[in-house]
Design a protein around this nucleic acid. Structure first.
Lengths: 194, 194, 194, 194
DNA sequence: TATGAATGAGCTTTCATTCAT
DNA sequence: CATGAATGAAAGCTCATTCAT
């Protein structure tokens, strides 16, 4: 992967995050990347091909920021989940609550009609669920979570709350929505005390 | 509003639900509605104008189905909330878990760049929150909900869970995701009968 | 078929005759026809679609000029064949021996890779063979052609001589080539005397 | 001429034979030849320049196969012409009747608009005519051909039949067309042994 | 009202050619 | 000699919108 290609993917990811895949025009990408039309097709076979690369890049970023740096750490489960929420809030704050979740947006834009991309995103969400579930299992073992909750369902529900919160936040263009709902998450999953 | 105009809006709402606003072409709408180009511009000044009407229609449908028929009813709060969840699940089941939430999709597609539509959707979500909050307040008064929860935040969080669940469901193209997460909602908000 | 569509097909047929299918650009056709890009796609679904129409038009023209006006006439076979050759020579003379046989050119350009167009042209050549063969059969019956020649093969061979003559004529950009070879045809098929 | 350059010309000739000059892309040639872009422009100044070389190569091949190995041989004229036809049939059989005559195809594709290439091909056809004419003259001297035929016209007509036969054969994608018409040639020019 | 022909800016993509290394 | 990154004009095509009837 040449630096140029990485640059194109990065610039495209910003555009797609803000505008969506369809609304991002090749000309936008060319302008942002500072390349010519022909050059683009030297690196990618099509706009679709770039979309694949962007999705992989976005998933890679999330895996790095959320999995490797937080959920995969050998720290206490409560800490991991709190750090995860902090980080997600920080990401949206940096974006000024404007564009929402890049992968969530794409999931909604393409899931019904683009099976390949859908599966990539779906696979990411599955991994995320598993890592949260592991944390919830640990909490349960430590008696910090109600014994009878189904951690598989609850980890998925936590992601749903996060994605839904970001959706509502984007719709209101107001970061407070995300803060409020992460508060509720911390309450409901006993992430607050001590 | 002539029946023809209503027909156009209805057919457009189906297409936009499945394809998104940008990916829905005027020609698709004309074909579905069985009208000609000139006819369209007789009823609408632009595609944007139609989008406004579609959003109003979608909001109107939700208000009828969820507000008037359920949340505004003088029934027990637990029943109202359960019926609301049942209805939302039924709607997605009918759609075979394919397209997700029409308003949620649009919220994500247009919130950053189309203030007028964003505000319309945002206003709908706000009303929804208020009606859920009212139900939660009643539950609290009946001692069926923890006294210290902030019902404003919790009603918003419930919508976040619902929208997030539908997002994940659409991404997996599997209704079970929605069922699982509504189970969690019922648990957490003490909606299961006893 | 609207006059506009006919005009596009006609102008395209001239361009394709001279330049070939691939070398004829949509922009050439638009300029010749005096229409805009969008209008073209109102009448045709693609450049390929136009090619189909052009082939049909070219075949139709040949059928009219060579079949209906000459070979299908109830005149003497020798006269019909001579008139056919005269007409073919006249057509190339009008074109100043520049572009050759429109259908022959297309046959060479597309036969290996475009089965649909190939079959259309092939079907035209087959009909042409049959009509010449009928004339040759009549000649044989009148004792004006050697009894033992296989009229099926000889009619096909006559078309081969014509198409080959036009090919060589085009290559030399000299009508005389065609005249010389039609002379040979008239000799060999006893079309001269009286 | 380096082996690499010869390789490029050879691979290009195969592609141009099948696809035509315009439809053969530089990238196809690079792939087939296993070279890079820069390498190509080291050997050729342009695609046109390559086309010149390909035409020379194709003409050279025909001269070797048809002239040197057959028509220039000091054998009997009837044998030479029969061997020529046999060889031409064999070449098309090898190609499975798919692509036709490489030089005939190019003649049709470029004669109207590329004078340099046209003249090269035209010059080849002229030489071919002369060599056939010489054979016909010898046949006439041996009393094996009608005295009064104009051997110049008849040699050209023979090439026309061959090229026309290959055109029809390519259009039908059926080698039998060529076989049938060469049969007629052998009849008409008294080439069948007796 | 109603039709669909016409427009044209802009889209994704192609491709011969040039250039830096 | 050799590579392949870079260029950009031009290709085929799309689509919201306008206009003549």
């Amino acid at each position: 992967m040449t630096p140029k290609k990485e640059k194109i993917i990065y610039e495209a990811s910003l555009l797609i995050h803000s505008l969506g895949y369809t609304n991002t025009k090749l000309s936008d990408i060319l302008t942002s990347s500072g390349i010519g039309k022909g050059q683009f097709y030297h690196y990618f076979t099509s706009k679709q091909d770039l979309a694949d690369a962007v999705v992989e890049y976005l998933i890679g970023t999330m895996k790095h920021d959320i999995f490797e740096e937080v959920l995969d750490q050998p720290t206490a489960p409560k800490l991991r989940l709190n750090q995860m929420l902090d980080k997600l809030c920080a990401m949206q704050f940096e974006n000024q609550a404007q564009s929402g979740c890049a992968l969530g947006n794409l999931a909604i834009e393409i899931s019904e009609h683009e099976p390949v991309l859908r599966d990539k995103i779906s696979s990411f969400f599955k991994q995320w669920e598993e890592k949260i579930q592991r944390a919830l299992d640990e909490l349960q073992q430590h008696g910090e979570l109600d014994k009878k909750v189904d951690t598989a369902k609850y980890s998925r529900a936590m992601i749903a709350m996060i994605e839904g919160a970001i959706l509502l936040m984007k719709n209101k263009q107001d970061i407070q929505v995300l803060y409020d709902i992460t508060d509720v998450i911390r309450n409901e999953y006993n992430l607050n005390e001590e």
